[in-house]
Computed example of a mutant assay.
Amino acid sequence: MIIYKQFTFDAAHYLPNVSESHKCRKIHGHTYHLTLFFEGEIALDKGWIIDFSEIKNIVNPVLDLIDHQFLNEVEGLENPTCELMAVWLWDKIKPQITQLKRVELKETPTSGAIYEGISI
């Protein structure tokens, strides 16, 4: 079975590796929408894969590192593209919740990244 938990956070950034004329070269912000997917067997004694409260208690401190922050100043996010942020989130959460299967991060309602793999 696969379950999911959704979160939102706000942050500002710029993309340092694009041309000077690219609009994302300037500081701007997003309200990010994060969906985390978890896969596992249902524990018959509890009736769930993992407690949603446990997920929240682990993920919220990670999001506190980036919520309302300037992402370019966050260690490991010097080039905070949506793709690299999804990997960064995976790297922070997967060691604590082994059932993590997928990170889906949207920086706009129509643009985002999905990561399901080994850290780069």
Rank of each mutant, 00 (worst) to 15 (best):
Y14W: 04
L15V: 02
N17C: 06
V18G: 04
S19D: 04
S19R: 02
E20H: 13
C24M: 09
R25C: 09
K26E: 02
K26N: 15
I27C: 01
I27L: 07
H28E: 08
H28A: 11
H28M: 10
G29M: 12
T31I: 12
Y32D: 13
L36N: 01
F37A: 10
F38V: 03
F38Q: 14
E39L: 11
E39G: 08
G40Q: 13
G40A: 07
E41Y: 13
E41G: 13
I42E: 01
A43W: 12
A43G: 15
D45S: 12
G47E: 08
I49A: 05
I49E: 05
D51P: 08
F52R: 06
F52Q: 14
S53L: 14
K56M: 13
N57F: 05
N57R: 02
P61V: 04
L63G: 12
D64S: 13
D67S: 11
D67T: 08
L71Y: 02
E73K: 14
V74L: 09
L77N: 12
E78R: 14
N79C: 11
P80V: 02
P80S: 15
C82F: 01
C82K: 08
E83G: 02
L84G: 01
L84C: 02
V87A: 04
T98W: 03
Q99V: 09
L100T: 01
